[in-house]
Write a protein that binds this DNA or RNA. Structure first.
Lengths: 150, 150
DNA sequence: GACCATTTGTTGTATTTACAACAAATAAGA
DNA sequence: TCTTATTTGTTGTAAATACAACAAATGGTC
């Protein structure tokens, strides 16, 4: 067993840590940038789907988005055909912050992939997508209460 | 910019989530498995180094390890030549839990890498190590209070 | 239409996480 | 040796995270 998953964990924690420190400048507290980005990229998305995309707990997403709303970065709108769901949209302020987040992400991308050729970057992306799809299935199952057998 | 870092984040959160659910069975609360594994693999390590390896905040590691100690899974021993540091060792109970964690990790490894050939796994590992080393440098710098320019 | 499972959202609560600030031991430099 | 910087560890505090439990709307099935 090569320590692939361990490398992934280290990279993820390090980058998240950096982003959280850097985004304090925009009054974004821990983790908020994740949600804002997804909502900007998918205006009209509902929070349940955001949680699924990010692989965080439903209630965590709910509270993070509540806070984004409270801070005026995101807006909840009623759906005309479905009284249960709230469609999420960035506010003008949210749209304004978005490019700064993307700029930071682009920088982290550059740092992280420094020294990798175009081909290597490509290979890495393809492989990671496959890994993510594999893991995704187990995550959804376990979150629904199913037990993995091994 | 391909969304490599996004894939890494998703994979890391999903796997962490699964592990946390599965390890509740062993009375390990959120995140604790990370610390226990590193201490079992590096008996005598100090908490500062554990935090560095995991890329978590020093104080987070401190409290996680405090709890492991309190729950009888890890033991702190004085160093004979240095009154400042505490050397960490797994207790008998810690050693007992360790293989269960590794078994779970091996299963997650299998799931995550399903469908990847030996060569692909190898390539992925090499590339991720390079990415991790890149990110590591920035993380250490930012954690020390330095500002990244971009 | 009535019934039941699923989806979506919320609140209460416990715990983890991290920043800030401090303290003490050690290491380094003059 | 004295002074200063670095390393290592702790505590106070604020916030995020997730689980459990609940509620309500929806969708499917008979």
């Amino acid at each position: 067993m090569k320590e692939i998953l361990r490398e992934i964990g280290m990279i993820a924690r390090a980058l998240d840590s950096i982003s959280n420190i850097e985004f304090k400048e925009f009054d974004l507290t821990k983790g908020q940038y994740l949600y804002l980005v997804r909502i900007c990229e998918h205006p009209g998305i509902i929070q349940e789907k955001v949680a699924e995309m990010l692989k965080v707990d439903r209630t965590t997403a709910a509270r993070a988005i509540q806070k984004l709303e409270h801070n005026g970065l995101v807006e909840k709108r009623d759906d005309p055909h479905n009284r249960k769901i709230n469609r999420l949209f960035p506010t003008a302020k949210g749209e304004q912050v978005f490019p700064y987040i993307m700029r930071e992400h682009a920088h982290s991308d550059n740092v992280a992939l420094a020294g990798l050729s175009e081909t290597e970057t490509d290979v890495l992306f393809q492989l990671l997508q496959r890994v993510r799809k594999n893991v995704e299935m187990d995550w959804e199952s376990v979150k629904k209460g199913n037990k993995r057998e091994y």
